[in-house]
């Protein structure tokens, strides 16, 4: 089987890979570049867990032979945060408890990002249309819709909108360095 050298602009940086005909954009991201944010939920284009932006458009990366997108720009969930600072959509998903198992989350956020990039002031219907290809089996979607609308407000810097807060236990600042928040064990 012939292999082809393919170049994509990945989260702002030109990257090359050697692709087989069957290499999809999703498998290139995951297996070649080690970017595991895009998930393989069905490999049928039906779950949206592998959604990334291709030249600014949301796409299901599992259905794209990567050789066909040579020269294109690809943005993934890994490219959103600025260092450790989450972008507005990511932060809104955290604040509004829009994640449960988390498997659909990267794809969901990329679909939402594609919407907000094109339409900074979306209606609820715009949001539901934008994420209708992203299956979430846990949340029932309402928190996700809420988070995307909140992210839009946040992005617009709408001063009328208070920063979302959740009640947290009153923990006075300790006099010694606190441990980081609970985290999952490293695999």
């Amino acid at each position: 089987m012939p292999s082809t050298i393919v170049t994509i602009e990945l989260n702002g940086t030109d990257r090359e890979l050697i692709a087989r005909p069957s290499t999809t954009l999703l498998s290139a991201l995951r297996e070649t570049f080690g970017l595991m944010g895009a998930k393989r939920g069905c490999a049928q284009g039906g779950c949206g867990s592998c959604t990334v932006l291709l030249d600014g458009r949301p796409v299901v990366s599992c259905l794209i032979p990567v050789v066909t997108v040579d020269g294109s720009a690809v943005e993934t969930i890994e490219g959103l945060a600025d260092g450790e600072r989450l972008d507005d959509v990511q932060q809104a998903f955290v604040d509004h408890f829009a994640t449960q198992c988390g498997f659909c989350t990267p794809g969901m956020i990329m679909s939402a990002t594609a919407l907000l990039n094109r339409k900074p002031d979306p209606t609820r219907q715009d949001v539901t249309e934008a994420i209708c290809g992203n299956v979430c089996r846990c949340t029932g979607y309402e928190p996700i819709i809420t988070a995307v609308l909140a992210a839009a407000e946040r992005r617009r810097g709408d001063p009328a909108v208070p920063t979302p807060t959740v009640p947290t236990p009153t923990v006075p600042t300790p006099t010694v360095p606190a441990r980081p928040a609970p985290t999952e064990a490293e695999v």
């Binding site: 393989r40 990511q90 928040a181």
Partner: peptide
């Protein structure tokens, strides 16, 4: 009784949460 944030949310929204298939 407090609605403390999910400890895994940051991993989920950044794509860093490691699911079993996320290894080559």
């Amino acid at each position: 009784g407090s609605a403390v944030p999910r400890s895994d949310a940051r991993g989920h929204v950044t794509g860093r949460t490691v699911f079993f298939e996320d290894m080559t």
